[in-house]
Design a protein around this nucleic acid. Structure first.
Lengths: 197, 197, 197, 197
DNA sequence: GATGAATGAGCATTCATTCAT
DNA sequence: TATGAATGAATGCTCATTCAT
């Protein structure tokens, strides 16, 4: 990576943090410059506009490659367990991107196009879950996309409010919490055929 | 209601819509003035500042009084059913307020104080649910506040993305959708003691 | 004095204090209204504009009538003594007017016209001093008007700085201070013919 | 001096003139920008606020260094002569600063702090005068600070009123005028021990 | 590859003033 | 005689953006 590319990456990283923390509109280019240790003019050497920079901030959510294992035989509970673990991990690793995505999408439609693109690069687990929804093994969800959006919306809201009210210094998504969510989602997804009949 | 009071209400209503749609920072006082058919100066006759106006916009979410019926004997499923119905109804009736609340809280901490105040005026159903969480009849949720926050976060995210992608012109939260959510939440909350043992 | 006239006087008094304390430009019509216990609109029933009100504030410096005694035979020192006493008394009684006069005259030329008018209504003592300047009994001052202006300029500056630095809570112009000034001015005015020759 | 520093100085010079002429509150940032031939935004690249600029305008009254000669043996009259000459010269060279100082100090207390700082950097002549006041060689003045303030207050008032009434086009403080003041102050300061006994 | 210097367009906010009642 | 309600015209200040170097 040459010097220019390095500077570009630096700007993206610093912007990402600032956009997530303060929101797009409240983050000034001067702050980005300061945080990056460069001049404002330099930002414009690499990005045409502030919104262009925002787009760059959400584009490369590096997806951890889930190994190409066969999930089709996995019992639902274990599938949900792996799924939640992955989603939560992604959330924690890429929290900035997701926050930007969910908080700014409403006011800057360009963003949401990017998002959908990414959703469609579903990893194998997500594909398997979608399949089971279609096969009605998962009986209480009719649309994977909306379920996924809702899940992340819930996670962000919970993490944010946890921080705002400083319920504790530690991170919200502890193992216990994650297990609780796995249970909740597992039983929710499964529903209960007996009950319903 | 005299003329002044009327003008004040008008400003609040118009601001609420704009704040929800465009976000606080992106909504200009000039737009509010225009939308209200008054001058910018008039806004400042009624509110000390723009953020003061924002607070006024979320403050009076009029809670529909849930009749003082006894919910303690109600089976869980029916309780969840009534609960979701109320939450969804509140969401639809006060969507602007909730959107402002969830989108701006992060950048404007004053807001979240207001929110907590409101949460603590729980209606009887919410109190009953909290009680059952404590009694462990609801086995997969340990903290009502975070559950509530997550639920609304999910609802807002789903409604927003539904609109952004204009999956259809109609409102997302149809009866079918609500029923799906009730099922999902009911089975999720209930968990399954047999399974776990 | 009927009600209207009373209200008008009230406005003038309150404005005078505010203008003197905070300056013309920094005094808002809303403050005047509040201090007077009336509405802003009422001010405009009695005065065409804010500057019109300012003029009204300096116009009626009620001059205490110095009795028509013959000062021409009085020794210089006694004359100066009476003169300073009168000036200081006028300053203290009409401090607001003088402060407005000296602080605002520069930025609002209309004011200074008023001032000169008043100076020319010299009282007998002032006339006598001017005469002695012309007769060269007072040998170090060539122009009474400028001397008078300088004296008041000095007094205001001293009173203001005394207050700004709160050298003490009590008023600056104590009897001792006045006596000091009388001495200073007396010897200054008299000069010393022997010395000069 | 690089370009930026030059611009900063230019802004200070132009502001100084405007503040002195029209007063702080009546001078608009737009006027300063226009007078300096730059945009309003540029002003804020160099100063945090308008009041910050005001402070910069009075801060660097470059004191001409009075050579370190021994004044302790100088006869009073000559000392006063040198003193007045210096004060008048300072007044003429830094008139804007002094006018701002005396006219705005009342409404903007930050200013007077600066002023006192400067007064306390007394030059040798001022120190000598203060000494003689303490030694009671100067018998009619008890406090140098107040005397100094009064003197400048008088000078400003006289210069201003001279201009307002345009008594003549020429500057008020001619040599004759200065000599008159020297005499007046000298005899005033000296008093007359014989007279008093 | 980087930036010092500058700005146009805009923003929240203020305030003297008006006028129907 | 008095004022509640409203505003036009500014004002201090901000910020994304440009460009010569």
């Amino acid at each position: 990576m040459n010097k220019g590319e390095k500077t570009k990456q630096l700007i993206i990283e610093k912007s990402r943090k600032l956009f997530a923390k303060k929101g797009f509109d409240s983050t000034k280019t001067s702050e980005i410059a300061k945080a990056s240790g460069i001049s404002e003019a330099t930002i414009y050497k690499y990005f045409d506009s502030k919104i262009d920079l925002l787009l760059a901030c959400i584009t490369p959510v590096e997806e951890e490659n889930v190994e190409e294992k066969d999930f089709s035989q996995l019992p639902l509970k274990q599938l949900v367990e792996e799924y939640i673990t992955i989603v939560v991990e992604k959330m924690i690793n890429n929290r900035s991107q997701y926050e930007i995505l969910f908080n700014e999408a409403i006011h800057h439609p360009e963003i949401s196009t990017e998002y959908v693109k990414r959703i469609h690069q579903q990893n194998p687990i997500e594909k398997e879950i979608e399949k089971r929804i279609r096969m009605e093994e998962i009986s209480t969800i009719s649309n994977y996309f909306m379920f996924h959006v809702g899940l992340i919306g819930a996670l962000i809201a919970m993490m944010n409010h946890h921080e705002i009210h400083q319920l504790s210094e530690e991170n919200y998504l502890t193992n216990t919490k994650v297990q609780e969510m796995v249970d909740f989602l597992y039983y929710g997804m499964k529903g209960n055929k007996e009950d319903r009949s």
